[in-house]
Amino acid sequence: MKHNIIKFSNLLVLVLGSQLFGCAQLSIEPWVKPYERQHLADPIMRANRHPIANMHVAHVYEARESARGSESTGGGGCGCN
């Protein structure tokens, strides 16, 4: 019985692991090949092309609006009066 539980949990890890790390169970191949990504690799496509400016933008909004989270710059709170 114990062996069965361990085998079952191994199977679970196998399924979850392969879902997480490779999508092997779904048989879906990556459809945009590495050599087709030159547009996406162009520096103009980087949302965080100017990280120091983005950190300031996030700080300005955080101090004046109630929304927080999902800014993609980390956040962290301030005592802005």
Binding site: G22, I28, E29, P30, P34, G76, G77, G79
Partner: peptide, 26 residues
């Protein structure tokens, strides 16, 4: 590690982030 200091407010924090490329880096 982050620290923000002003005369009436001291804030200390840490942040941990893990990112992982997968599925042919897609």
């Amino acid at each position: 590690l982050r620290q923000s200091d002003e005369s009436d407010y001291l804030s200390k924090s840490f942040n941990l982030n893990i990112s992982h490329d997968t599925f042919g880096d897609l």
